[in-house]
Amino acid sequence: MILWAVRWYWKRPGFSSSWRIDEIYIKVKGKWAYLYRAVGKGGDTIDFFLSQTRNAKAAKRFLGKALNGLREWEKPETINTDKAPTYGIAINELKKNGKLPDTVKHRQVKYLNNVIEADHGKLKQLIKPVRGFKSLKTAYATIKGFEVMRALKKGQAELFQFQEGIMGEVRLIERQFGV
């Protein structure tokens, strides 16, 4: 619940008109689950979504979640994805529903996603020692914590910190969690 307040910090200040979207596989209950992630052009975390399926419906739910609460000027001008056809279907459906402007460009150019691929690597380093999760709920909660701490480490909340460095991060967390 409190992490949603921190989520606000990373969505607003690091606004990027160009999003990089991709998914990675993680083990949940011995089966593969899909962690959809979006980062800005500069590598700032935008949002993530954990799903049991990898299809157009899951991609649409993820993009809808990432766009939820954004003002028109905060929505991306360009969405870069890999060659997965599910993203094209999801983006077109969101345009039809009016949740995404018709002017948004969808680019399927593999090398443009190097930013998110590098970011996946850092997240995988945190997930690897866990050796899989027991349930989707615990996986989501743990990954949410990882994502928030990574966003802080990337400096996405510097605008809201009263001091620089680690002590600024500590104070921000103290304010959010009421400690």
Rank of each mutant, 00 (worst) to 15 (best):
F146M: 11
I116F: 06
P129R: 02
W10E: 10
T103A: 14
Q161E: 14
V130H: 11
P85S: 15
D102P: 03
I143R: 05
A157Q: 12
A84F: 06
N114L: 03
Q161W: 09
R20Y: 02
Q163K: 13
A139R: 09
E169K: 15
K137S: 08
L123C: 06
P101I: 04
R71N: 06
V170H: 10
Q156W: 07
G40P: 02
V104I: 07
K29M: 06
A56Y: 08
L63V: 05
M149F: 10
E77K: 15
T138R: 10
T78I: 15
A66Q: 07
A84T: 05
R54I: 06
V115K: 06
S18N: 05
G121P: 01
E23Q: 12
Y25K: 14
F49V: 01
L70F: 00
S51I: 06
V28I: 06
K27R: 15
L63N: 03
Y36M: 02
L35T: 01
A66P: 04
K99Q: 14
G14H: 12
G178W: 05
H120N: 12
F48Y: 15
L67R: 11
Q176K: 12
L70R: 08
V28F: 00
L94N: 10
R171T: 07
Y9I: 08
K137A: 05
L112P: 02
L100D: 08
W8A: 06
K124R: 13
L159R: 15
E74C: 04
